[in-house]
């Protein structure tokens, strides 16, 4: 009987090696594992094995059963998974996926968000203000003298002699300082207007971000350090910049910051990116803050120009044309 068992084991291995699909595997099952199969027959025969041999034969028979069952199971699952794969290949996986529509924020919003994100990281709050402003908030409170040529620096849309479309976000400074006590640390983004002929270079409106910090010991050196930190985060660590004296009625000393712009294959040049300075004492007096006790800095920058430079847009009008072919690019 032991010989028969070992012979069966070899036969089974042999039979199994010839199996190629589930059908031929089923034949093997019928031959060995079914109710009328070889194994069942062996266990029938086992009953008549003499008692003294029972232990040895029994062991060997059990081994054979385990061997056959395991080999069979493993081959079965292998063939099944192979068949599943074959089923899958009935699908044309190269078909494109179903579309999900996702829109996008306007490029100006995206750029503004970047600027906001940096300044919020530097501990600034964020305030907004109206676009149709009083002449007082837009000019007078900001130390623009009546009849001074400084008023010509910004071409203004008037609604009445005393109401204007704000020419900068600086009037929000006035509103914030009128309503809060120092310390004040805030940026003020928004839309501003200039009465200029519309061209590739200029539009009748654009967006600015204004910044203001008022406290007891705010200095010009800190202003420079803050803005340098901003430039490095926005344009990259290697940005080349300069801090240059300038003039704004509402700051003194005043400065502008330029970054070095080096287009490929062209001559490099300085491009102005922002204006800034220490809040003029007259502005503090106009909003009831003591200029002897408090000092402060303010800064402002245009968003469109920055975005255009960053993305290589040479005509500002495309930003306001609402052309979906443009919008989808960003």
């Amino acid at each position: 009987m032991l010989d028969k068992i070992s012979e069966t084991r070899n036969n089974f291995d042999d039979d199994l090696s010839k199996v190629s699909d589930l059908n031929s595997l089923e034949d093997v099952r019928l031959k060995y594992l079914s109710r009328k199969g070889i194994l069942t027959q062996f266990f029938e025969d086992f009953k008549s094995v003499p008692n003294d041999q029972k232990k040895l034969v029994g062991q060997s028979l059990n081994n054979l059963k385990t061997h056959i069952q395991e080999k069979f199971d493993s081959l079965k699952s292998e063939i099944e998974s192979r068949t599943n794969l074959q089923k899958q290949s009935d699908i044309d996986l190269t078909l494109p996926g179903r579309t999900y529509q996702v829109g996008s924020k306007h490029l100006i919003t995206q750029t503004m968000d970047e600027v906001k994100y940096i300044f919020k990281g530097l501990g600034f709050s964020l305030f907004e203000g109206p676009e149709l402003e009083s002449d007082y908030n837009n000019f007078t409170a900001l130390n623009f003298a009546d009849d001074h040529p400084a008023r010509d620096m910004q071409d203004t849309f008037f609604v009445t002699p005393n109401f204007v479309l704000r020419t900068h976000t600086s009037p929000v400074q006035i509103r914030v300082m009128q309503n809060m006590k120092p310390p004040i640390r805030a940026i003020m983004p928004g839309k501003v207007y200039r009465n200029e002929v519309i061209s590739a270079k200029s539009y009748c409106l654009f967006h600015q971000v204004e910044g203001l910090y008022v406290d007891t010991d705010v200095t010009f050196a800190e202003l420079k350090a803050t803005l340098v930190a901003f430039l490095k985060q926005f344009f990259g660590k290697d940005v080349v910049y300069r801090f240059r004296a300038s003039f704004f009625p509402f700051t003194e000393p005043s400065a502008e910051m330029d970054v070095w712009w080096q287009p490929k294959g062209k001559e490099g040049r300085w491009l102005e990116v922002l204006g800034c300075g220490m809040v003029d004492p007259n502005v503090f007096i106009n909003v009831g803050i003591d200029p002897e006790k408090y000092t402060g800095y303010a800064f402002g920058m245009g968003i469109e120009r920055t975005a255009m430079r960053k993305y290589g847009i040479d005509d500002i009008r495309i930003l306001f044309d609402s052309d979906i072919r443009f919008l989808k690019q960003f």
Partner: peptide
């Protein structure tokens, strides 16, 4: 709104 598939536009206020 962008997650719902909308594109933001900015038009002239004048």
């Amino acid at each position: 709104l962008t997650s719902l598939g909308f594109y933001e536009i900015m038009t002239n206020s004048l």
